[in-house]
């Protein structure tokens, strides 16, 4: 009889302890990114639930007018912005489905994606982006603004795009266009 009386408060106490552990534990976890003073924050990427999909708009250059044209895709949705941007870039690498110019050498890989607090996304490409690039101003311009406009159009929190190759800043993509500054999207390059 007495034992039964004790069970309820005891189990409540246990429950309380569990809740407290959970609460403080999760708070500690959330704090980690804030504490980091590094400019580039890399969030934890594992364990994300990827169930639904979302529509995105990609921009590819047309050889007819040399302007950017829209092409719709579906990518997996998710809460981590870096992962979504990576999916978008992979779609760009896989190229246009409507005969527009694909901005990347197909063997290009994404090495990493980082977002700073002031809305600059750093995209680190494998060396093939440069070594297999056809070179020439037009090819470089179409590569860069295909990426920059696609990202800025779909992810409004991204203001600028900084392109890295093999983990480092490059002077130019393939001899012409300056890569040492982040790019703003060029709305004047979009076809109406």
């Amino acid at each position: 009889m007495e034992l039964k009386k004790l069970i309820l408060p005891a189990s409540l106490l246990v429950l309380l302890i569990i809740l407290m552990v959970l609460f403080f534990g999760s708070q500690g976890k959330e704090k980690t990114p804030d504490v980091s003073s590094a400019d580039l924050l890399e969030e934890e990427r594992s364990g994300e639930e990827e169930l639904d999909t979302k529509k995105i708009v990609l921009f590819f250059i047309s050889e007819d007018d040399y302007l950017l044209h829209k092409e719709e895709r579906e990518i997996l949705n998710g809460s981590i912005l870096e992962n979504q941007i990576e999916r978008l870039v992979k779609e760009l690498i896989s190229g246009s489905e409507e005969g527009l110019l694909s901005p990347f050498p197909p063997e290009t890989k994404v090495r990493g994606i980082y977002i700073t607090r002031d809305g600059i996304v750093y995209i680190d490409f494998s060396p093939e982006f440069q070594t297999a690039h056809p070179s020439g101003s037009s090819a470089e311009i179409s590569s860069i603004f295909s990426i920059v406009n696609s990202i800025a159009y779909n992810f409004k929190s991204i203001k600028r795009v900084f392109i890295l190759v093999n983990g480092t800043e490059q002077e130019t993509l393939a001899g012409h266009i300056d890569l040492r500054r982040p790019f703003l999207p060029r709305y004047d390059l979009i076809s109406d």
């Binding site: 037009s138 012409h176 703003l184």
Partner: peptide, 23 residues
């Protein structure tokens, strides 16, 4: 310069000046 593109059909002449990339 002489231009280069992904496809062999791209053609023509153009003249560039610097964009500030800051506007």
């Amino acid at each position: 310069h002489a231009n280069g593109s992904y496809r062999k059909t791209a053609q023509g002449s153009e003249t560039f000046f610097l964009s500030l990339n800051a506007t």
